[in-house]
Design a protein around this nucleic acid. Structure first.
Length: 465
DNA sequence: GCATGATCATGC
DNA sequence: GCATGATCATGC
């Protein structure tokens, strides 16, 4: 029935999709002769279902076959949003299919249903805007996409980590932070829904395989700014796919790069790397760490895509970190509208930023002062580790502090937010240029900028283990 | 010595 | 001008 494109030809489908760029669905569908009654139907559904049904004329899909059956192309509509600084980022992760705990443990990555279903994906990025009708979102970009060769080792390892947990009867312990590009995100009708798993009696949250929002952001900027040099200011750690030989994972490779420098003082490391003296630099530990990784840019490609945050930690002789760890400032007027649990991507509300930050994977580079350490460069490289905040701490501590913060802001107590003595893991403190560096609050006028901090005693425990 | 509040330095 | 990572100052 549809003659706008060749159902068996991916390129033809892509060309037809590209016609959407710069337009919205309302006009496009009306121009296509879709009756206004359909276009304006109140129960119109999501952007993705409208696109699928009315623009491409596809039947309602089942999970097991690609949307464009003959061309073996899967259609995915995905929202981007604009930050205040004008940058585009992905609004959410890209869900690539629900996990069937009963079946996935029998699969191998190379022949997995995940890989075969998502070999070729037609990505349609649209600009999400608050309070705008789905029919009026502007389509930004439509492209055929497949997993790039350079990303495949990481995605494979992510998949295997997730499946390993199912095989160990630990499906209930899976979290998004375990993995780098691919994640097992929760996918349920509500936050109480649970499902069975094959190797344990514990009920687990239903989950889906998804590309992380960070990965999608990077992908969007790469696709949309193909000619722009901006994409180049991040350099990869792994320069050749050959480095993955003999079964090494990305994290193995990263950790190995630090091994020759273990126990050496920063001054020695610098000499070995042939670096100029940078002892007056405030970020010299971060700089030395990036040099060990062989990266000259400030941004590291794999870390950006995976949302891995590199933090350098300086321990005192006692093993106590010098400082608490800060996170970006929050806006009083925005944090009160956040929601902690987002069970579905179609949920219009914003997930708590604190939760998003704490769920990221961290890469700690730990330096330690052995004796007096008058100069920073006398500190030695103690260890490196990838780390995730345990879910029980995120839910048990961070969530409580976040809730209390919102409660106080809403009741006119924005100047008395949860302090260090109130929680051993997370607290709130100012993070501003000075006392005059303020932003508005709902009930207390202008107040100094603040952010959440992780307690250094808590960091110490995590680094020690 | 530590909690708390405040500020500095740097890069984008 | 602002975000971010890092650090300081004060008082208990």
């Amino acid at each position: 029935m549809n003659v706008a494109f060749d159902q068996a030809d991916p390129k033809s489908i892509e060309s037809y999709a590209k016609k959407l760029e710069g337009k919205n669905l309302r006009e496009t569908l009306l121009n296509k002769g879709i009756p206004a009654s359909v276009v304006n139907d109140r129960d119109r559904g999501t952007f993705g279902s409208l696109l699928e049904r009315h623009y491409f004329g596809l039947p309602v899909n089942t999970e097991s076959v690609p949307d464009f059956v003959m061309a073996k192309v899967e259609l995915k509509a995905t929202p981007v949003k604009r930050l205040l600084n004008g940058k585009f980022v992905s609004k959410e992760r890209l869900v690539l299919g629900k996990i069937n705990y009963k079946k996935i443990h029998e699969e191998k990555f190379e022949t997995s249903s995940f890989l075969s279903k998502n070999a070729l994906v037609l990505l349609v990025f649209y600009l999400y805007e608050q309070k705008v009708n789905v029919l009026d979102y502007i389509i930004q970009l439509a492209r055929l996409w497949g997993i790039p060769e350079a990303d495949l080792p990481i995605i494979k390892n992510d998949w295997e980590k997730i499946v390993a947990k199912v095989r160990e009867g630990k499906a209930h312990e899976i979290t998004s932070g375990d993995t780098l590009y691919l994640e097992a995100c929760t996918k349920a009708a509500n936050s109480r829904e649970r499902t069975t798993q094959p190797f344990s009696d514990e009920m687990a949250k239903p989950r889906a395989l998804a590309l992380k929002a960070r990965y999608m952001s990077e992908l969007f900027s790469r696709l949309s700014e193909e000619k722009n040099l901006e994409a180049l200011d991040a350099e990869p750690i792994v320069k050749s796919i050959k480095e993955y030989s003999s079964g090494k994972t990305f994290e193995d490779i990263v950790i190995e790069k630090f091994r020759p420098f273990s126990g050496l003082p920063v001054s020695e490391i610098r000499k070995k790397l042939g670096l100029a003296d940078g002892s007056s630099q405030k970020d010299e530990f971060a700089w030395v760490s990036r040099s060990i990784l062989g990266v000259k840019t400030k941004r590291i490609e794999e870390f950006e895509k995976a949302g891995v945050v590199m933090k350098t930690i300086q321990l005192k002789k006692s093993g106590m970190p010098k400082e608490d760890m800060s996170f970006p400032i929050f806006r009083y007027e925005e944090i009160v509208n956040e929601k902690w649990d987002i069970v579905d991507d179609d949920d219009p509300e914003t997930e708590a930023e604190l939760k998003q930050h704490l769920q990221q994977r961290f890469f700690f580079v730990v330096f330690r002062c052995e004796n007096v350490c008058k100069k920073p460069e006398e500190r030695i490289l103690e260890k490196v580790m990838f780390w995730n905040m345990p879910e029980k701490d995120i839910e048990g501590h961070a969530r409580k502090v976040w809730e209390e913060t919102i409660k106080r802001i809403n009741t006119g107590k924005a100047h008395q937010l949860p302090k260090k003595s109130e929680n051993p893991v997370v607290h709130v403190r100012p993070h501003a240029k000075n006392g005059a560096d303020t932003i508005p609050t709902p009930k207390n006028g202008m107040l100094v900028k603040k952010c959440f901090w992780l307690d250094k005693k808590y960091i110490q425990k995590q680094v020690r283990s």
